[in-house]
Simulated scan of single mutants.
Amino acid sequence: MTILIVEDEAIVGMDLAARLDAEGYDVLEVADNGKDALALFKANEVDLVLLDIQLKGSWDGIVTAQHLKQIKLVPFIYLSGQTDDETLERAKETSPSAYLTKPISNVALRISIDLAIHNFAKAKDETSNVKALNIVTKEPNATRESILQIDNFIFIKQSYQFNKVKLSEILYLESDNNYVHIITSSKKYTLRLTLNGVLERINFDKLVRTHRSFAINIDQIESFNDHEIIMGKHTIPLGRNYKDDFMRYFDFL
C-alpha cells in the first residue's frame, strides 16, 4: 500500500513515515502543504492519505481533502490536535475514514488504516459494483484474514495489514487442504480458505481452474501439453476433468 502523508511539522511527518515503513507500508512522501500534496497525488498512485488539518499555505487539511476528492476517491484519515466542534463539523462534511487526535499511537494508526481500506472497498461495492470481498463465517477461522478488491487490485490481509496485489501479476492459486497459496511473480500469500472460496470472491475472469487444487492466470501461460502447463519455473497440472473448460479460452484458427 502506498500512503501519502500531509503534515506541516517535519519531525511529526518523519516519525509517521518511519512508523509506517516499519509496519510494511510504502510511504510516497511527506508534503507540508495542500498544493504540494495535490501535485504528488496527481502524479502518483496513492492508496491512502494521512492528512493533518493544520497545514502550511492557504489550504488547510479539509480544503486539501476537497481538492483531492475531485481527482480520485481514496480513503483518507485526518490527523489533528484540534477537537473543537467547528473543526469536527467541517471535517465530517468531507466524509473521512477516521479522525485521529495527536499524539497518535501505533495501535490506533494501524486499526484506522485497516478500517479505512475495508470500509472504502465496501462503499465502492455499494455505489459502483466494485467487489468488496470479506471472508464469510462458513470459512475456517474467518475472522483472521480477508480479501478486498478495488478495480484491478486485491488487498490481502496478513499479519494485521493489507498487502496490495495487482490481479494481472497473479500466476496461480494452489489449494493445500484448508489453505490457499496465491503465487505472484515475486511473492507468495497464504490464506486460510478453500480454493472455491477464493475464486468466488475474486472478480477476475483470467483465473481458470485447471485441476482440483490449482487455478491459473491464463495470460501467464508460456506453454502447455495434454497434462501440464508451464509458467516460468512453475509446472501446473492440467486435470482431465478440467481440460475442456481450459481449451474454451483459446480460438482455433
Rank of each mutant, 00 (worst) to 15 (best):
S159Y: 10
L79V: 04
K102V: 01
V165L: 00
L253V: 09
P237Q: 05
I230F: 04
R248Y: 14
F153N: 11
L195K: 05
V30S: 04
D244L: 13
L88Y: 02
D85A: 12
S58I: 02
D226E: 14
L20G: 06
I182G: 03
Q161M: 15
K166A: 12
D85F: 09
G13A: 06
E145R: 02
I135F: 13
N119T: 11
L4I: 07
Q70F: 13
Y249M: 12
S168E: 12
V30C: 10
I77H: 14
A121N: 04
S128H: 10
A108C: 10
D85E: 15
V30M: 02
V49P: 02
I113L: 03
D244C: 09
D226V: 10
F155G: 01
K166E: 14
N241V: 03
N106Q: 04
N119F: 00
G61W: 02
H211L: 01
V74Y: 03
E7F: 04
S112N: 09
T190I: 13
S186C: 15
I104P: 06
T94W: 03
F120R: 00
N33H: 13
N152V: 06
N225Q: 02
G24W: 11
I156A: 05
F250I: 08
A132N: 10
Q149D: 01
N203K: 15
Y242I: 00
F250A: 11
F155V: 05
K188E: 14
F155Y: 03
A65P: 04
V136W: 03
A142F: 08
I170R: 09
V27S: 00
N196A: 15
E23F: 15
D176C: 02
Y189W: 08
I111P: 11
N196H: 10
I104R: 04
A142N: 12
E222H: 07
L28H: 05
K124V: 13
L88C: 01
L38R: 07
